[in-house]
């Protein structure tokens, strides 16, 4: 990209964004009519309004829209040394996506099994971890939302949140220490005489899966808690009064009510787990190839940004498809899980 083009983008885009938002505001005003009461500008003044429009607009465009667009663009370009980017040889191609499926043109294998397997494993394990997180969180969230008294609730919240004050990478290392061959768990097992030699939790991926499940547990926890908390306790009591056993109440009263929360929790946990980098790098066994480290390697080891962009996009699309699938299964609309 030429520097002049960059300058145009930097100085012209804010103006375009402001104009676009202003037009939207005017259209909205016209549609809602004057009965909508004093507008945002009337109550807060133009300086505040312009600041907000520029700030939100720039944030959206520069932090979200432009990087995404450039990544999509990059993913369809061939691998070239940076001086040749934008030159005549920089044409659109499906090479990066072909590589993901079939691997190097010089390789004899018909499929790119390493990457495809890593991709499949990532998606499959992320689904399992999402389910695991739901199973772990549901009883705790139900207890916190419907049973616990305020004092107990505060204690629970603190106990849940406090470990997350520690950095994600440090937490991953803590899990590594916990599951190491001379770690607490192995020493406890051997001390108790259950095993006579350390179990290799790291190679068995126990450490990785525990670490991943723990990493985004709170996302599921608070999504569920918020959903269950809004359930009128009288409904639980009404079901009980009508003779329902406890499992029936959970299955047919609590879960249907918590559906949007379950869906949003599952979406968050799945997306974050599939995109997790720290835990797989620190806790991944020698034989496990998670997909995100491969993407990372495309960028920083192979210096193949084009391919990295393609891989990242593949993961993103897979995640979006999963979310839409979950919504379909739960018969929910996108707006409902954002509540």
């Amino acid at each position: 990209m030429h520097s002049s083009v960059g300058q145009v983008v930097i100085f012209a885009l804010p103006a375009v964004v402001v104009a676009a938002f202003a037009i939207l505001a005017i259209r909205d005003r016209r549609r809602a009519g004057p009965a909508a009461g004093p507008g945002f500008v009337a109550t807060n003044g133009w300086p505040v309004a312009i600041f907000l429009i520029v700030a939100v607009g720039l944030w959206t465009v520069f932090m979200i829209v432009l990087p995404m667009l450039s990544m999509i663009d990059l993913s369809f370009r061939p691998r070239l040394p940076p001086p040749q980017w934008g030159s005549a040889r920089d044409i659109y191609t499906l090479e990066n996506y072909r590589y993901f499926l079939f691997g190097s043109t010089t390789s004899t294998a018909s499929w790119n099994t390493t990457h495809l397997k890593a991709f499949g494993l990532t998606i499959w394990v992320s689904i399992l971890i999402t389910i695991l997180d739901f199973v772990v969180c549901y009883p705790i969230a139900f207890y916190m939302a419907q049973v616990a008294r305020p004092a107990r609730l505060r204690l629970f919240m603190l106990m849940l949140i406090a470990p997350y004050w520690v950095n994600e990478i440090l937490r991953a290392f803590a899990f590594r220490l916990l599951f190491a061959s001379q770690g607490v768990i192995n020493r406890a097992l051997m001390g108790a005489g259950i095993t006579d030699q350390p179990i290799d939790f790291i190679a068995a991926d126990v450490a990785l899966y525990s670490g991943l499940a723990y990493a985004y547990l709170l996302m599921m926890m608070f999504a569920l808690y918020n959903a269950i908390e809004t359930l009128d306790r009288n409904q639980i009591e009404a079901a009980r009064d009508l003779g329902a056993p406890w499992w029936h109440i959970h299955l047919f009263i609590v879960l249907p009510h918590a559906k949007p929360g379950i869906a949003s929790g599952a979406t968050l946990v799945f997306m974050l787990t599939a995109g997790a980098l720290a835990a797989p790098l620190v806790l991944g066994g020698p034989r496990t190839l998670w997909f995100t480290p491969i993407v990372y390697d495309r960028f920083y080891q192979a210096f193949n940004w084009q391919q990295g962009a393609a891989y990242a996009l593949i993961l993103l699309v897979a995640c979006v498809v999963f979310v839409l699938l979950v919504l379909k299964i739960f018969k929910l609309r996108l707006g409902e899980i954002a509540k």
């Binding site: 009128d232 009288n234 409904q235 009591e237 009404a238 079901a239 009980r240 009064d241 009508l242 003779g243 329902a244 056993p245 009263i253 249907p256 009510h257």
Partner: peptide, 27 residues
Amino acid sequence: PNVRPTALIFQNLALFPNMSVADNIAY
């Protein structure tokens, strides 16, 4: 309460909003 021969009508009724009228009555 689930085995007593009583049925309680709550102040806010506590009908199940995710069920139809028939499913509520049949619960």
